[in-house]
């Protein structure tokens, strides 16, 4: 098992990961910003390293200082938690280069799933139903044509999206014309990637997730679903498991197909070696 894990995060998830490590007998390294010196994750970890000034860009997203912290403490793995560096493919590659295990999916899978357009393409190839939508839009003419085919209302979404950034709800061609450049600019500013696509807007849908775990040998399990429909501005507020909207036969079919699809695909949740 790993000897020492560095937790590249703060707050409750850092505490959660440290607790799991302690229960498994693995040593832990906390990293912290100057604003977080007195927080619980710093106290609970066996060692701690200050990695920068308060702004996240200079501390919890500071890849050189975090890698350096792993090296000076002799950590052999990094757990990114959620947010910050958790879905940063480049960071996973740097870990790999320095022989430090990134606790997350393999690099190819991160690239595939982090790019929403590619993830959608993969789902389509695996016959998993997707919301009617488009590929990356070249220009306004294409957007107007495709929106007409799909039928309004439609959603403009950023390829690199998350947290509602670069996302716009439009109900008419005029609104699409007005909002397309805004969404692009917002996506460019937030993710350094201005590519956007369209998706049909579903009326009053539920947000349901399936928890999937997979290992390096290709075993994949689905651990039921979560209902995450209670949100404000695309931020979840309250979640529950299971969902009362998912009936047992649906659950069996859904988790069953996911399971098979994921086994068929090349995406397996494993370490990086």
């Amino acid at each position: 098992m790993f000897h020492k894990i560095l937790i590249a995060n703060r707050g409750e998830i850092a505490v959660r990961v440290i607790r799991a490590c302690k229960q498994m007998g693995i040593k832990t390294v906390a990293v912290y910003s100057e604003a977080d010196r007195d927080l619980l994750h710093v106290k609970l970890a066996d060692e701690s390293v200050c990695v920068g000034s308060p702004s996240a860009a200079k501390s919890y997203l500071n890849v050189p200082n975090i890698m350096s912290a792993a090296q000076i403490t002799g950590a052999d793995a990094i757990h990114p938690g959620y947010g910050f560096l958790a879905e940063n493919q480049q960071f996973a590659e740097i870990c790999d280069k320095h022989q430090i295990h990134f606790i997350g999916p393999p690099i190819e899978a991160m690239g595939m799933l982090g790019d929403k357009a590619r993830a959608r393409g993969l789902a389509e190839r695996l016959n998993v139903p997707v919301i009617p939508g488009t590929d990356v839009l070249a220009d306004l003419d294409e957007a107007l044509k495709k929106a007409k085919q799909i039928g309004y209302p439609v959603m403009i979404k950023a390829v690199a999206g998350g947290g509602g950034k670069g996302m716009r709800f439009v109900t008419s061609p005029a609104e699409l014309e007005k909002n397309l450049p805004i969404a692009r600019a917002e996506a460019e500013a937030s993710f350094n990637d201005g590519r956007v696509y369209l998706e049909k807007y579903l009326i009053e849908p539920r947000h349901i997730e399936v928890q999937i775990l997979g290992d390096r040998s290709g075993n994949v399990v689905a651990v039921g679903e979560r209902e995450c429909s209670l949100q404000r501005q695309h931020q979840k507020i309250m979640e529950e498991a299971p969902s009362i909207a998912v009936t047992p036969p649906v659950r069996k079919k859904d988790t069953g197909t996911r399971d098979q699809d994921w086994q068929r695909s090349s995406l397996r949740w494993r370490g990086n070696h």
Partner: peptide
């Protein structure tokens, strides 16, 4: 409908 897969702990 499939929307996305988050490759991390939620």
């Amino acid at each position: 409908y499939f929307i996305e897969a988050n490759a991390r702990i939620q």
